[in-house]
Write a protein that binds this DNA or RNA. Structure first.
Lengths: 360, 360
DNA sequence: GTGAAAGCGCTAACAA
DNA sequence: TTGTTAGCGCTTTCAC
């Protein structure tokens, strides 16, 4: 058929991949992968019949079906997704893009997306934008033809870039909104009010907000919500920053808080909040006796840091799952005959020991 | 060319994806993606020339090259990876499989793999095996034809399944060894000795090991190392469990430790160790005054839990990066003309406040 | 330096 | 129910 190609793939090789723990036999070099033609030949049917057996098992003779599957298993055949995609234009693959896979905040989104994707019988690939709009855009461009749709989480892309992306792929946003695009967002307005009310009820008269990255949409929403709620509650609200929302930004932020003499501080997220608490402890400041600290996200670790952190929990797993479901509902090419319901997910204030009565 | 197909893709739709935050214009329905033929036509050259312009820019007239790129950008053209893969058999994509993406231990591996993949100019997809051998096998089967190789982290697959996988794809293992397969592993023997020596120097005469899942290769290595080192140091060593290595397993494990009256406990990993410490605190047991606790992994959070955890740090980022580099060195189809150096990465004992002098 | 043509593995008409 | 045929978008000889 194509002997040259075959040779190129299965030619002799001197594989020497040995492991310290097991000096025995090296695994034979990768074999040429069985194709639909191989299976067809071995089963004595046409390729299209094999194709049918895999895609529409109902429309094939029972006995033939069984034989094909048997032969396929024997040959270790699995349909080549690339070839499938080429023909149908559909890849049965969804992409989830996050700013940083290692950020525990996104763990929930990933988990939820993973679950919903599996339920829908699709494959999920996760890509890391490395907090970098350029990288994010490149991912969308390069991965675009290879997936049926994107879930863009906390996207840093400007509206027009998102719009362009949505022209070629189905797109659903999480914790980011853009004109005309489907999105799943947390209810930061209510959430911020919950935080403010909590602090007010503890006697705090003002709060400091430690802001995250300037381009962060959710950061903007958080601050807007806090400011509005504070005004309504007759509390002062000041924004510091922006800070990179990392543990390492804690010291700078904490020092600023102390210099300002604040009694209550709300951090852009839990990681920053924990960094702040660590610095406060280093400087001999007791949380919550002297300063109350509140975070956003309720990440892994916020329950066992010291002291355990009061924080606004978002339904991140739900967000991930809903985003995927929406993507699936949008249909193969983004088609939507019915309304795609935009989603605002409720938040929940988890009160732990990092917030307490205001110092008098 | 294929009008029916075109219609199917770009036919009229009533997109109603509206966002609460921005009621304006809906994004137009996804356009048909530009193909190499479109670009060729628009630039007045043959498709093959466009192909060359993208794959071997040197072999094309400078002016032609420029024109093609310009037209391509205008049309928003990006080569379809699926079509490319079909022809070349190479996808320029690597897959990283982890038992649980949301487990912070794997964050380092992911980060390192991400970095090395980017350096090599490839794309990385991350798949979650959900701690489930069947899922893992399915991933390898389904994703197999779509990627150039796999990094399998802490694989739960039996040796023969790994062997089968390696026959069709290049495979590198992380913290798992199997006959004939390339692997990157942490030096648990030395690491375990470091832990035992540390505990011995604090006066502990025995330790309890809280074991992880039975199929965990690294779990077996950890216990083997601890037992050997303990024997050499004249210390007692007992294994409890197996426990699911989660925070939620903490209570059961902690209670067992207390019932046994142990003074030193080494947990399968940090998450379990933190769960144990939390339970101990709940039961009024002071760490490290009454019980010393040591973990494995040095995950995010082990420095700010209470008390900060003494743990064996692995070079997870290095492991991820090395694994990808090895995969790349193995070559497109797993070919390796030179030896693939198996890698044992050093570990480092990070002593924090959870370990202390033995109670007398 | 460029074009024409064949084919990668698979699916989807259309016939039989 | 099954086989035949024609591409999907791209790369790659092989001529020109």
């Amino acid at each position: 058929m194509a002997p040259v190609r075959e040779d190129a793939r299965s030619g002799p090789r001197h594989v020497a991949s040995v492991c310290h723990f097991c000096h025995d036999a090296a695994v034979p070099p990768p074999r040429r992968r069985a194709t639909i033609t191989d299976v067809a030949a071995a089963a004595g049917v046409a390729a299209s019949t094999v194709s049918r057996a895999f895609t529409r098992p109902g429309r094939v003779n029972h006995a033939t079906q069984a034989r094909i599957m048997e032969v396929a298993a024997e040959l270790g055949y699995a349909p080549n997704p690339a070839a499938r995609a080429l023909e149908s234009g559909r890849t049965n693959t969804l992409a989830l893009v996050v700013p940083d896979v290692t950020n525990p905040y996104f763990a929930g989104v990933i988990k939820g997306a993973e679950r919903a994707t599996a339920t829908a019988g699709l494959t999920l690939v996760i890509a890391d934008a490395q907090e970098n709009p350029a990288t994010e855009e490149q991912i969308v461009t390069r991965l675009g033809p290879a997936v049926d749709g994107f879930v863009l989480t906390a996207s840093r892309l400007p509206d027009d870039a998102l719009r362009r992306a949505a022209e070629l792929n189905a797109v659903v946003l999480v914790n980011r909104a853009a004109p005309g695009l489907a999105c799943i967002v947390s209810d930061f307005d209510t959430g911020a009010r919950q935080i403010v009310d909590h602090l007010a009820s503890l006697g705090h008269r003002a709060l400091v907000y430690l802001g995250g990255p300037a381009e962060s949409w959710s950061g903007a929403r958080r601050w807007a919500g806090l400011r509005a709620a504070a005004q309504q509650a007759g509390m002062g609200a000041t924004r510091f920053g922006p800070y990179t929302p990392t543990f390492a930004s804690g010291p700078a932020a904490a020092d600023a808080v102390l210099a300002a003499g604040a009694t209550a501080v709300v951090a852009h997220n839990d990681i920053l909040a924990i960094g702040v608490m660590t610095r406060l402890a280093d400087r001999g400041v007791v949380v919550p006796d002297q300063v109350s600290v509140v975070g956003f996200d309720d990440i892994f670790g916020s329950d066992f840091c010291h002291p355990p952190l009061t924080t606004l929990a978002e339904r991140t797993e739900d967000a991930g799952a809903r985003a995927v479901e929406t993507l699936v509902a949008l249909g193969p090419a983004g088609r939507a005959d019915r309304d795609v319901a935009p989603r605002v997910l409720p938040t929940q204030l988890v009160v732990r020991r990092s917030s307490g009565l205001a110092v008098s």
